[in-house]
């Protein structure tokens, strides 16, 4: 590795650390800006009936008797040692909660991206093939729908229609862990189908638009004309020259969307009862389970950063020019 590459890597790591610290600080402050604490969250109005002694004991139990700065740094200190904290509500470690929630979100995110690419790229290419015609208009309309139909609406529609119309309701059953057995894997994939379609449809929109724009601009490039002059047929031209180059911006867009998906699609996970990371955060907020929210958000931020790095690496694979510099 050259010294320049080493320096770039170092800077990158510094930037990652700074980002994560910022996220940690923000989520810590925001969580405490919400009125109420763990005591009111677990006891409700009954919290008023506690004696001062009980109050103090509970505050000490939850660790909120310390000053905020001390709380922040003791949490951070634990984190650095790999300890994500303890969920007071479910009485397990945040790490083990995350270990079971993260794969659910990861699977959903990847499947959604596959759906999005499978819809978005063909729609974008179709639209670009004949710009400003009815086909283009149709493609644009699909993209507009994908952007503007809210996920909760599409999710509710798919769920009710599939259940009442064709009796397909795998999400009514408890979540199946895919590596338990072959039949569990089957059920798991069925459970993932509708949520992946919901999310995929939404993400297909920006991917289709990016594809359309990229194909249209690459189509007019000089090298496409030169390839045509060489005797290359239209199909081969589209596949080997136009699409290969148009995929560069699509890669960036895909990486960006994957990052967001890893943050957990809270609404969709909730509607389809998937115990993913988004639901874990939502539950944590509702229950004022500080450690769960703080650490999970940080895990999400880390995942986002990692996806960005992976996207950059993927870019190196598709674009030889980046590889060189």
């Amino acid at each position: 590795m050259t010294s320049q590459a080493l320096r770039r890597l170092t800077w990158r790591l510094v930037a990652v650390a700074a980002t994560l610290f910022g996220v940690a600080l923000l989520v810590f402050v925001m969580l405490r800006a919400i009125p109420g604490d763990q005591i009111t969250a677990s006891l409700g109005t009954e919290a008023a009936a506690l004696t001062p002694g009980q109050q103090a004991a509970l505050r000490e139990y939850y660790g909120i008797d310390q000053p905020l700065v001390a709380q922040f740094f003791s949490w951070l200190g634990e984190l650095v040692q790999g300890n994500l904290g303890w969920s007071v509500r479910s009485r397990t470690s945040v790490a083990s909660l995350t270990m079971s929630a993260l794969p659910v979100t990861l699977e959903l995110a990847l499947l959604s991206i596959l759906v999005a690419l499978a819809i978005g790229i063909p729609v974008g290419m179709l639209a670009a093939a004949a710009p400003n015609t009815w086909r283009d208009g149709l493609g644009q309309l699909v993209a507009l729908l994908g952007l503007s139909v809210p996920a909760f609406l599409l999710a509710s529609f798919l769920l009710t229609y599939a259940a009442s119309g064709v009796g397909f309701n795998p999400n009514g059953q408890p979540y199946a862990v895919p590596w338990d057995s072959v039949s569990a894997l089957g059920l798991n994939l069925q459970q993932m189908l509708l949520p992946a379609l919901t999310l995929g449809f939404g993400i297909a929109a920006p991917i289709a638009r990016t594809t359309r724009t990229a194909v249209l601009s690459v189509r007019d490039e000089d090298f496409v004309r030169t390839a045509r002059a060489k005797g290359v047929g239209e199909r081969r031209l589209r596949r080997r020259h136009v699409l290969r180059n148009a995929l560069l911006p699509v890669t960036t867009m895909t990486g960006l969307q994957l990052g967001y998906l890893l943050g957990g699609a809270v609404v969709v996970e909730q509607i389809f009862s998937l115990p993913g990371i988004g639901r874990q955060v939502l539950l944590g907020i509702q229950q004022k389970d500080y450690a769960v929210v703080q650490s999970t958000v940080l895990v999400i931020a880390l995942a986002f950063v990692l996806v960005n790095i992976v996207t950059d690496l993927a870019y190196r694979v598709v674009d030889p020019r980046v590889r060189a510099s």
């Binding site: 490039e221 000089d222 090298f223 004309r225 030169t226 390839a227 045509r228 002059a229 060489k230 005797g231 290359v232 080997r240 020259h241 290969r244 180059n245 560069l248 598709v318 674009d319 030889p320 020019r321």
Partner: peptide, 21 residues
């Protein structure tokens, strides 16, 4: 006919080659 019967050498060498091939 293109390529086999009529060859082309275009103007700008910087833009006439596919950058990812």
């Amino acid at each position: 006919l293109r390529g086999a019967g009529i060859g082309l050498v275009p103007q700008d060498p910087m833009t006439n080659l596919n950058p990812v091939m």
